[in-house]
Amino acid sequence: MTLEEVRQNRPLQTGLGLAFGIVFGFLLERGGATEHAVIWGQLLLYDFTVVKIMASAVLVGMIGFALLRSFGLTEPHVADPSLGTQLAGGLVFGLGFGLLGLCPGTVAGAIGRGSIDALVSGAVGLVIGTGLFATVYPRVGPWGARTGRLPWRTVSDLLGGVNLWLAVVPVALLILVVLGVLEYLGL
């Protein structure tokens, strides 16, 4: 089976989605990110577990992604950036993030460790909220896309159209410095 056949095989992909989800949930639970207290600890800026998980995932993943790109094994999946889409939507997300103390992935993880709160408020709210957005999408979507558009899609573009690796290296160093400072400060 070639890589292309794996990607085109729908039943196999559905199974792979489940498998990726299982490993993802296992890792989120072991990292501590499925606990409300850990998320709120991060948002109150005294427990940096979530930032450490995300930063190390991005560090490893961006090297992996850049390797795959170098060998032509994957394509970029990057949205057009605009303040009206990602920043505005992100801020609304943030309000929910703070009230619930979980995000969409960790809601599922928290259900797995026994949180009824995550099930009856988190998952139910997410189903309602995503549906509400589907209703207003014909108006909000185009408004967001044309409001505060930014000209760069990736850090490579921002640095003047450099090769992916030339963008990966400074971002990787930045992540290492941030993690080093967190450890140095005992956070």
Partner: peptide, 24 residues
């Protein structure tokens, strides 16, 4: 808690689709 968290979940769902993705 249910009222607050349900509101949180709704905002999370609305905002994640508006932004085109979540923390993952």
């Amino acid at each position: 808690r249910w009222v607050a968290a349900l509101a949180g979940g709704i905002l999370l769902g609305f905002g994640s689709r508006w932004a085109g993705g979540c923390t993952s």
